[in-house]
């Protein structure tokens, strides 16, 4: 059974200019021991979705639909109960580790508090767990590090401390929102390697949010591609790269410089994503899509199974056209 099930999630921010539909009817699920990647460009609603799951949105946001952790419904749960779940059953790591770390407290103090908030253990036992946690994420001399302040460490080390803190109480769900975006490739590779190990050792469901298809290919089992608040394509990672189905996904893959060395000119998706304040009526990708048809501008295409495993796509193009174009795209690159 899926550990996390999101159904028809809608997250709307009230703003002075009107409601912003940051997440518009997203459905997805993740099993224990699996990594689900969420890809899409900035502003497509990835963070709004993860904050909805964690119950960390500001008051100006409204959440509708269903989010279930195991068999527990999270939408509408009182704040106190969500707080108890956060850090225990589910945890989140961010692009900027200082989102979770307090600059004026030692790392030891913060880790011990995080343990004691959720587990009835002695201070000494909490300290032991904290040291174990730091060691598990590859921090050298973890005992000494307990006395350090977050800003005394390098960016990569801070990222590790935040991951250790998120994992202290063995959560069943871990959401990682762009955990490597601000890092150098070398440090990114270290953190990805760490996440790969964690995935083998802790049986948590992981949601990995990123804008980088390389990171998806390295770490994820399943992928959901988001565009302007909606999921436009969902597939296993192998299926997505071998037979991409949505014109937006094609555009993303074709514009990667590393996958398209031979092409004379890098493919570019023209224009930019629509405003979520007043989104277009039909397919939200229509204004940038080279395959756009009349129907696309009027009717939003529903997310429909392709018939291959769990894969689904939201596009009015006929299946044979999508298969042909998708195959051509991955064929060209192999050539």
């Amino acid at each position: 059974m899926a550990l996390l099930t999101v159904e028809n999630l809608r997250t709307t921010f009230r703003t002075d200019d009107g409601p912003v539909g940051a997440v518009d009817g997203v459905s997805l699920s993740v099993d224990a021991g699996q990594v689900l990647g969420i890809v899409g460009e900035s502003g497509c609603g990835k963070s709004a979705m993860s904050l909805s799951i964690m119950g960390l949105l500001p008051k100006s946001a409204m959440v509708e639909g269903s989010i279930r952790l195991g068999d527990r419904e999270l939408v509408g749960l009182p704040g106190g109960e969500l707080r108890r779940l956060r850090g225990a059953e589910m945890a989140m790591i961010f692009q900027d580790p200082m989102t979770s770390l307090n600059p004026v407290m030692t790392i030891g103090w913060q880790l011990v508090e995080a343990v004691r908030l959720h587990q009835k253990v002695s201070k000494a036992e909490a300290r032991r767990l904290a040291i174990e946690g730091l060691a598990a994420v590859g921090i050298p001399s973890p005992e000494d590090r307990l006395r350090s302040y977050p800003l005394e460490l390098s960016g990569g080390m801070r990222q590790r401390v935040m991951i250790a803190m998120a994992l202290l109480n063995r959560p069943r769900l871990l959401i990682a929102d762009e955990p490597t975006t601000a890092l150098d490739v070398t440090t990114q590779a270290q953190i990805l390697e760490l996440m790969r190990e964690l995935r083998r050792e802790v049986d948590a469901a992981i949601v990995l949010i990123t804008h980088d298809l390389g990171v998806v290919a390295e770490l994820c089992d399943e992928v959901a591609v988001m565009y302007a608040g909606r999921v436009v394509e969902r597939a296993t990672v192998d299926e997505l790269f071998a037979r991409p189905q949505h014109p937006y996904t094609w555009g993303l893959l074709a514009s990667l410089p590393g996958r398209n060395l031979a092409s004379e000119r890098l493919h570019q998706i023209p224009g930019s994503p629509p405003s979520l304040l007043r989104p277009p009526a039909g397919c939200r990708f229509a204004a940038r899509c080279p395959f756009v048809m009349d129907v696309c501008r009027d009717d939003p295409p529903p997310l429909t199974p392709t018939g291959r495993g769990t894969a689904a796509v939201a596009c009015h193009l006929a299946q044979d056209v999508r298969d042909r174009e998708g195959a051509r795209l991955s064929g060209e690159e192999r050539a």
Binding site: V185, Q188, E218, V237, D238, F241, L256, G258
Partner: peptide, 20 residues
């Protein structure tokens, strides 16, 4: 070698030397 590879099949088979 630290660059992520946007190809899951190659990513799985790649030998990695992660710079410590």
């Amino acid at each position: 070698a630290a660059r992520p590879v946007a190809d899951p099949v190659r990513a799985r088979s790649q030998q990695r030397i992660v710079l410590e």
